[in-house]
Amino acid sequence: MQNPWIYVGLFMIVGMLIPIAALVVARLLAPRKPNAIKQSTYECGIETVGDNWVQFKAQYYIFGLVFLVFDVETVFLFPWAVSLNKLPLFAVFEGIIFILILLAGLAYAWKKGMLEWV
């Protein structure tokens, strides 16, 4: 039992059981009298027009892509940051070059106007 992830797995199970327990208690205590008006989509009292699942701005996707690139980058940087104190000085510059290359990408996206919302 040296694997700490067993503990994390147990934590996950308990972390789900507690909210489920709360919902079950609520299910037992709460009244349930559904009707069509009550269950209709809430839009401040106005009847819903059209379909509720609407298409969205493509801009969200661009930000998602930029985020993905930086997310992968940080994953590489974590081991670098942990071991940095035990490494020679040029390792610092390697990390800095790594970050600068990525920042160049951000600058390019900025220049191209991809970071504008409208």
């Binding site: 661009i62 892509l65 930029v66 690139v69 992968v72 980058e73 590489f76 070059i97 790594f98 290359i101 990525l102 160049a104 990408g105 951000l106 390019y108 996206a109 191209k112 991809m114």
Partner: peptide, 14 residues
């Protein structure tokens, strides 16, 4: 890996 990520970003932006 860093250059690859840069290429991916530039491609997406383009």
């Amino acid at each position: 890996a860093s250059v690859l990520l840069l290429a991916a970003l530039i491609g997406a932006v383009y």
